[in-house]
Computed example of a mutant assay.
Amino acid sequence: MAHNHTHSHGHGHDHGHGEVFHSHAPVGKMKQAFLFTLFILVVEVIGGLFSHSLALLSDAGHVLTDIAAIGLSWFALKQAEKPSNQNMTFGYYRSGILAALINGITLILITIWILWEAYGRFQHPEPVQSTWMFVSAGVGLLINLYLGLGMRHEDDINVKSAVLHMLGDAAASAGVIVGGVIILLTKSSIVDPILSVCIALLIAFGAWRIVKQTTVILMEGTPQGIDFQKVVNEIKLVPNIKDVHDVHLWSITSGKNAMSCHVVLDGDMTIRDSQAILRDMEHRLIHLGIGHVTIQTEDCDHPHENSELCAAKEVHHHH
């Protein structure tokens, strides 16, 4: 994540630090994706009803979760643009994470529904008309590829989760088309529920990853790709820092990492000396992908727990 080394450290204490990681989220693209996906849903539901294809209907279920996903992502991107205020001092970034979490859970529920329906179909296979399957799935495939590939380079987890939906959808539509070909050739409709099970598992896999990642962020866990011990060691390398404790690492939203800690400095230092140390620390941490840093400086006599978390090497100071 540390992709901005041109940061100016020339002036006092720079509170603009975290903005290094602000992704210019594609609100317009999301809106376009939302409208297009709505169109796919209509086409696939009509196609699914006409062709009696569970694979198409489960794909439509997949698309419905996409609409939720994209709608929520779009809403969250709009929210994230709102400035922070006295009630929400971190701004509204977390709304995107909440959106992604709700997405993930809905997706898992839809998966269960598809599996249940498919189970019924295995017992009593229904005849499926494949022409409708081609047309509807073809529309879905093309639009999703266009949308997903158009946004695949975005960093925002919220946008990533939406793109994952789109590409998953494209894969599912492609599967439905292949299924249609097999049904045409073999005249056997059992392919349909088999396909819908595959689509369901595809949905569940993506959903589980989203749920896991968002839960870590909401639980204030150490951000993905950041090594706690490495951060602590880096701070200890700063000249004149005797010790560090009470270290907290978390993400405000994906890609916006924050940290707070207490550092022990030599008691005879002037404020100006300690400013130089703060700047040195901030500079090192930016390179590790942490943009928002809050540091409490203390002297050796300051009473505190002797640990980084509550599990670290004790440092005994001899006065």
Rank of each mutant, 00 (worst) to 15 (best):
A174K: 04
T131H: 11
S251F: 08
H245S: 05
I114G: 00
L167N: 11
A76M: 02
A170T: 08
G28I: 11
I105P: 07
G96K: 06
I194T: 04
M166Y: 05
F34Y: 03
S130P: 14
W250Q: 03
P193R: 01
H304F: 12
G18D: 09
G12I: 08
L54M: 04
R279E: 11
V244S: 04
S58A: 15
L288G: 07
L249A: 06
F34V: 01
V263A: 07
V27C: 08
A172K: 03
T106Y: 12
R152H: 15
I182Y: 06
H22F: 12
K29V: 08
T111L: 01
W250T: 07
C198W: 03
M151N: 07
H15C: 11
G61S: 05
D268P: 02
A25Y: 03
I182M: 12
M269V: 03
I217L: 02
N144W: 05
K82I: 12
I105S: 08
G120Y: 08
L142V: 15
W132Q: 12
M1N: 11
S53D: 05
L309K: 14
E234P: 02
L147V: 07
T106A: 15
V232Y: 10
H304Q: 13
L141W: 04
L72A: 07
H9V: 09
S95V: 15
V63M: 12
A69Q: 02
V244I: 12
L237M: 09
L237E: 04
F50H: 05
Q79C: 13
V191M: 11
A33T: 12
I67V: 06
G291Y: 00
A174F: 15
W132C: 08
F90V: 10
I226D: 06
S8I: 10
W113I: 15
S23R: 11
M88D: 12
V232K: 11
G206L: 06
D192I: 06
T131R: 12
T215H: 10
D14F: 09
G175W: 03
A80N: 06
V176L: 01
M133I: 15
L72Q: 02
R279G: 08
T6N: 14
A2C: 11
S53V: 04
V178E: 01
S84E: 12
A204Q: 00
E154M: 14
R284L: 01
N257G: 04
I70G: 00
E19Q: 12
D155C: 08
Q224Y: 14
A137F: 03
L35I: 15
K230L: 13
G267E: 15
R279V: 09
K82H: 14
C261P: 00
C261K: 03
G12D: 13
E234D: 08
W113E: 14
I177V: 14
I183F: 05
G168M: 03
C300P: 06
N4A: 11
T186L: 05
P127H: 10
T297C: 12
N306D: 13
F36Q: 09
R94C: 07
A100N: 02
V20H: 09
L64T: 11
I105V: 15
G96A: 07
A60N: 09
L57A: 04
H22V: 13
V128R: 02
A33M: 13
A276S: 12
G150M: 09
L167D: 05
S136E: 05
L202V: 11
I112H: 00
